[in-house]
Computed example of a mutant assay.
Amino acid sequence: MQKSIRFFLALALFGGIAAGLAAGGGKEDKNSGGVSKNLVVYSNTSEDFMSQLIPAFESKYGVKVEVISASGGELMNRLTAEKDNPIADVLIGGGKSLLQNSKDLFEPYHSPEAAFIEEVAQDPDNYFTGFEFTTHVLLVNRNVVGNIKIESYADLLQPQLAKKVVFGNAAKSNSAFSHLGQILDGFAIAEGKRYESDSGWSYVEKLLKHGIMLESSGNIHKSVADGEYGVALTWEAPSVTYMKDGAKHLEIVYPRECLYFAPSTVQIVKGGANPQNARLFVDFVISEEMQGAMGTTTSSRPVRKNAALASYFKPYSDIERIVGKNHMDYPEEWIIQNTKRIQAQFNDLMTRVLQ
C-alpha cells in the first residue's frame, strides 16, 4: 500500500512539473538557463555582418533573436534606464574605451573561443569581448587628386590638396577622435615618445586650416566617393565596401605615422532574461565559422587569429610593412584616461582656428 502511495505521489509530482513547464512557455530560469529559445540583442554594428550572423545563429541553436539597432549613445541610454529590468540580453558594438565607465551594466564572461582572438581584443576582466577590428584610414578619390603622392597624414598638407581634405569633429565623432589619436601618437612616435606631442597638435592646427570639417561621419566618406572632395579621414569598413562594389577610382591609404586596430566588442547585459543564450551568442560571434565569414564576405575585419581575409582587405603583413608594429599597439587605457581632456583641447583649438 505504501509503495502505491509513493508511486502516485511521484506521478502527481511529475505531472505538476510538466504542467508547470508547459504553463511557463519555456521561459528560461536565470539560474539554470538553457530552456529559453529567445534572445534580445541591442546592436550598434554593421548591418552587413548582422545580416549573416543572426540567421546563422538562429539556425544553429534554434533561438529566435530580436535585434534592436540604434546609435551607441541611444542604446547606452536605454540600458541605463532599463538597468533594474533589462530588456536586452546582449549589446554588440561599442568598445571598452567607450563602455568602461558603464561596466556595472554588464556581466563578466570568458568565452572558450577567446583564446583564439588577438590579445588586444581580449579584456582581462572579461566584461568586453572583441569581435571586429575598427581602423581609421584615408579614402582617396584619384579622379579628384590625380597622381599626388598620399601615404601619410603629413602628405595631406600639400598645397595641391587645400580644401580637398575632409574630416569630422573630434569633439563629437568617434571616428574623427580615433584619427586624432592616431595623429597625436604618430607624431609622438616619430620623436621617440608615445601618445601625444606638441608637433602633433601643431599638425592638427594646420589641418584644420587646410581642410574642410563636416559634421556627419557618413557624409565624409560619401562626399569623397562621389567626387565632391579628394581625401576623407574615415574608417575602414565603409571604405572597403566601396572596394567590394568595384570602385576603381578610390584608394584606401593606411597612414604611415600610426594605425590603431581598435576592437569593437560584444558584451552580456547584467540581469538579462536569457543568460545561457547570451553566452552562446558571444561564443558564436568569435567562432571560427563566423569570423571566417566576416573576413571573406563582409566589410568588417575579424579579430580571430589567422582568420581568412577577402582580397579587398589589405593583409596585416602588408600593413605592418607600412606602419610597423604600432598598428596593433592600441593604447586603450591611455585613451580611456585622456579622452575628455583631448576632446576639450581639440574643441578649444577648433574654436580658435575656425572662428
Rank of each mutant, 00 (worst) to 15 (best):
E28C: 06
F7C: 04
E28K: 05
R6S: 06
F7V: 12
L9Q: 03
G26F: 11
K30T: 15
G16C: 10
L13E: 01
A22H: 10
G33Q: 10
F8N: 01
K30C: 05
G24W: 13
G34W: 13
A23N: 06
G16R: 02
G20D: 05
G15N: 01
G16L: 07
A12I: 11
E28S: 11
A23E: 07
A10I: 06
L11N: 00
D29M: 06
I17S: 04
G25P: 12
A10D: 00
S36T: 14
G25H: 07
A22C: 04
L21D: 03
S32A: 14
D29W: 09
I17E: 08
E28N: 02
G20V: 01
N31Y: 07
G24R: 09
K27S: 11
G25M: 06
S32V: 15
A23K: 08
A19V: 08
G16F: 07
A18E: 04
A22L: 12
F14A: 15
I17L: 15
G33A: 12
L13C: 11
L9Y: 04
S36L: 01
S32H: 09
F8M: 14
I5K: 14
A12N: 01
A23W: 14
G33S: 10
G33R: 06
N31I: 14
L11Q: 01
R6D: 04
A18I: 14
V35E: 13
K27G: 10
L9T: 07
L13T: 13
F8W: 13
E28Y: 00
A22E: 09
G15P: 00
V35Y: 03
L11V: 08
G26S: 06
A22P: 00
I17R: 01
G25C: 04
G16H: 00
G25W: 08
A23H: 07
L11R: 00
G26A: 07
A12K: 00
S36H: 05
L9N: 00
A10T: 04
R6M: 05
G24T: 01
G26V: 03
L21V: 12
L21T: 07
L11T: 06
R6T: 11
A10P: 00
A22S: 06
A22W: 13
F7P: 00
G16W: 10
I17M: 11
K27Y: 06
I17D: 07
G24M: 10
F7I: 14
G15Y: 00
S32Q: 12
R6F: 12
A18V: 15
A12E: 01
I5N: 05
V35H: 01
G15M: 11
L11P: 03
L13P: 01
G20L: 02
G15T: 12
A19Q: 07
G25E: 08
S32N: 09
L11I: 05
N31L: 15
K30L: 15
F8E: 04
F7R: 10
K30F: 06
